[in-house]
């Protein structure tokens, strides 16, 4: 237990490569400067947050919803729809009845 805490603590600082991978997942371009700055900012935050490792959470259920209740369920009824013309007016690019994006099938994207 103690060893794993030490190991994790040693790994806490985020390397610039980790920042780049994370930024790619989050679809954010970062300049080289931003990568460096983010790495140091996030490392500081994570170092501070390493205090969490001190808490004994054995057997503690995580809280996702602060006020525990079950989900309500909706009747299967069709409700109001949005006006497409209005929606398309707010879209960056549209054509006929469609929203438009740069062509999907190229390199580098998930499918």
């Amino acid at each position: 237990m103690a060893r794993s805490i030490e190991n994790s603590a040693a790994q806490l600082a985020i390397a610039p490569d980790e920042v780049r991978t994370t930024a790619e997942l989050a679809r954010l371009y970062l300049s080289p400067d931003e990568v460096e700055r983010t790495a140091s900012e996030l490392s500081r935050i994570l170092e501070y947050a390493a205090t969490l490792k001190r808490v004994d959470v054995t057997g503690v259920e995580p809280t996702v919803h602060a006020v525990p209740q079950d989900s309500p369920l909706r009747d299967d009824v069709v409700g109001p729809h949005d006006d497409l013309a209005t929606a398309l007016r707010g879209a960056p690019l549209s054509q006929d009845r469609y929203f438009v994006v740069p062509a999907i099938f190229e390199t580098g994207d998930e499918g």
């Binding site: 989900s71 909706r74 009747d75 409700g79 949005d82 929606a87 398309l88 009845r97 929203f99």
Partner: peptide, 30 residues
């Protein structure tokens, strides 16, 4: 509550949650 029928004009069955508009929330269908 947006409809699910297969035959429809493109983007006919849209509402805030379907388009992922800010502020929209999910409530499950029983």
């Amino acid at each position: 509550g947006a409809a699910t029928t297969f035959f429809a004009e493109p983007n006919e069955h849209i509402d805030p949650h379907t388009l992922g508009l800010p502020g929209s929330l999910p409530v499950p269908n029983r």
